[in-house]
Simulated assay, not measured.
Amino acid sequence: MSNLNDTLEKRALLEAVNLALHRAMQEDENVVVLGEDVGVNGGVFRATLGLRDRFGFKRVIDTPLAETMIAGLAVGMAAQGLKPVMEIQFLGFIYAAMEHLVSHASRIRCRTRGRLSCPMVLRSPMGAGIRAPEHHSESTEALFAHIPGLRVVIPSSPARAYGLLLSAIDDPDPVIFLEPTRLYRMNPQPIIDDGRRLPLDTCFTLREGSDITLISWGASVHETLQAARMLEERGVSAEVIDVASIKPLDLDTLEASVRKTGRCVIVHEAPRSCGVGAEIAASLYERALLDLQAPIQRVTAPDIPPPLYRLEQLYIPSPEDVLAACELVLNYA
């Protein structure tokens, strides 16, 4: 396998998304892509580059700058048998689309007693780290995780972006697919364009360990893995889990890890209050309280809007922040 990987072209997360979109549109003529600048320009980050040339303007649709209209159009398309993949240019622009996501996309299956479903995917870049204004740098995944009927998926590597996006497009219900902009061009890896899907609603154990469990998702997986390597240099064995699908949560995998290590730190870039980390912590306390040897710690961004880029690195949780939380947990008495 190592020899095969050496010969494969390495692709970054952004390229993996593009590859998955090409694959899905090739496999299923009902898959359509829509959003602002997705056609002629290939998207604000070029995630949809080449799609219009290959599949035509009827399947790759440039829309006006109107997120409300984009979401409403996607819901209508999905209800009538298409599989729309809509792009919102930045997560901070999504609020105008919330009416359709909350009141319609998430409820169609229940409202029609299963007669209709809503097989749509909303793609959006998320998170800080690219020196953009605050509306371009938000991590508000908890808003969508709170809505019954919505799946929320956040890949942290090119391979997971490819496999999870294909599964999201296959899903008969709406999926919010959030792509960390900070990872778009970071850490390319070999990818085989074979259409292999990865399971939704499943955590991925990236590193086995026995002393402490580090739980993260999205861009913060990068800092979490760095912290795990720093712990290893100190003789501490850290297990690292990428949640990947934050709604529904794969609590069985998380519980099994925490029961094994007895210690847990949760890391996410979103603000602390009412974040997904709090939900994970509460669930682990309910399931594995007597196996915990220390209180669970959370490492998060502060409860403020993302700052201007000069302060960005103070806002994003760092490996040192993760390490400090680990030391609290490991030294708890």
Rank of each mutant, 00 (worst) to 15 (best):
D6G: 15
L8F: 02
E9N: 15
L19W: 07
A20S: 03
L21Q: 07
M25W: 01
E27C: 09
V31H: 01
V33M: 12
V33N: 03
D37T: 07
T48K: 00
D53N: 15
V60W: 12
P64C: 01
P64F: 06
A66Q: 10
M69Y: 14
G72M: 11
L73E: 12
M77A: 10
Q80M: 15
Q80Y: 15
K83R: 15
M86R: 12
I94R: 00
Y95F: 15
L101F: 13
C110T: 15
R111H: 11
R113I: 13
R113H: 14
M120T: 12
L122W: 03
P125R: 05
M126I: 15
G127M: 06
G129K: 03
S137F: 04
S137N: 05
E138I: 05
F144M: 08
I147Y: 04
G149P: 12
G149R: 02
L150G: 07
V153D: 10
P158C: 06
L166P: 08
S167V: 08
D170E: 15
D173H: 13
V175N: 10
Y184P: 04
R185Q: 13
P188Q: 04
P190G: 08
G195E: 07
T202Y: 12
T213R: 10
T213L: 12
L231A: 00
E233D: 15
A238R: 04
D242H: 01
L251C: 13
R259Q: 14
T261F: 09
I266T: 06
H268M: 12
H268A: 09
E269L: 06
P271W: 00
V276N: 08
A278M: 13
A278E: 11
S283L: 08
L284V: 03
L289Q: 05
D291S: 14
L292C: 09
T300D: 12
P307I: 00
L308A: 03
Y315A: 07
E320I: 10
E327W: 06
V329G: 02
A333S: 15
